[in-house]
Design a protein around this nucleic acid. Structure first.
Lengths: 105, 105
DNA sequence: GTAACGTACAACCATATGGTTGTAGTTCAG
DNA sequence: CTGAACTACAACCATATGGTTGTACGTTAC
C-alpha cells in the first residue's frame, strides 16, 4: 500500500497511469509526452511498476507499458473502507440520538 | 492531490486516519498508540493536516484531531475516474469486436 | 556491417522525508 | 505559585526522491 499511494503521489506518474489505462505506450512514447529526460520518465515507470500500477512487456526493441486497473481498485477499496468506518460512526451517533429521544419519552 | 496521496503513503498515517475517522483523539492520545516519539506523531498529523485529511481544533491544552471524509472522497473519486477510463477502453474494444463480427456477416 | 533507436543503469546533485532530541510556550491541577 | 501535561518548533541525521548526464547493450533498418 505504501508503494501504491507513493506512486500515485506524483502528477507525472498519475498522468502516465491515466494514459496507459486508455492505450498502450512504449517507454519512449511516454517520454515524448513530458518535458523531462527519457531517464526520468523511465524512473517514473519503474516506480509505477514496483507499485503494480503498470506492467512492462518487451516487444522487439520496445517496452510496452500497460495500466493495471486491479491496483487502482486495491487503492480505491481502502478508501472505501475509510468512508465505511466513518459512516458507521455517523450511524452510531444517530443511534445515540435515537436513544436520547426514547429516554425522553 | 500530490499531498493527499503522499499523506496516505505511510502506514502510520493511514492508521491515524482510520482512527480519527472513528473517534476524536488528542495528539498525545494518538502518540500513545505508536512506538515512536511524540514529535514524530506530531509531524505525521501535520502532514495529514496539510493534505486536508484531518483537522485540528484546540480544546483547552489539548489539540483534538478529527478525520475529514471529504478528502478521502476526493482521492477515491480520482481512482474512480481511472477505473472509468479503463472501462471505456474495454467497451471500445468490445465495439471493435462487434464491428468485426458484423463485417463477417 | 553500421548507424540509429529504445532501453537499462550508474553516478551525481538538490531537496524531501521520517525519525530523533532538545527547548520553550500554554494550560491545568494542587 | 509551582509543577506537570500538552503542544509547537528547531536542529540534526540517515535515507529516499526526482531530476540530470553519461555509458553500455540489444534490436531494427538500410
Amino acid at each position: 500500500m505504501d508503494r501504491l499511494f507513493q506512486a500515485l503521489a506524483d502528477a507525472t506518474r498519475r498522468d502516465i497511469v491515466s494514459r496507459v489505462l486508455v492505450a498502450e505506450y512504449s517507454v519512449s512514447g511516454l517520454a515524448e509526452q513530458y518535458a523531462m529526460s527519457f531517464a526520468a520518465v523511465q524512473k517514473h515507470v519503474a516506480v509505477l511498476e514496483r507499485a503494480s500500477l503498470v506492467t512492462k512487456e518487451k516487444r522487439g526493441r520496445e517496452q510496452i507499458v500497460r495500466g493495471r486497473v486491479d491496483a487502482v481498485q486495491r487503492a480505491r477499496r481502502l478508501l472505501d473502507e475509510y468512508e465505511h468506518i466513518w459512516r458507521q460512526r455517523i450511524d452510531r451517533i444517530g443511534d445515540l440520538l435515537a436513544e436520547d429521544a426514547s429516554d425522553q419519552d
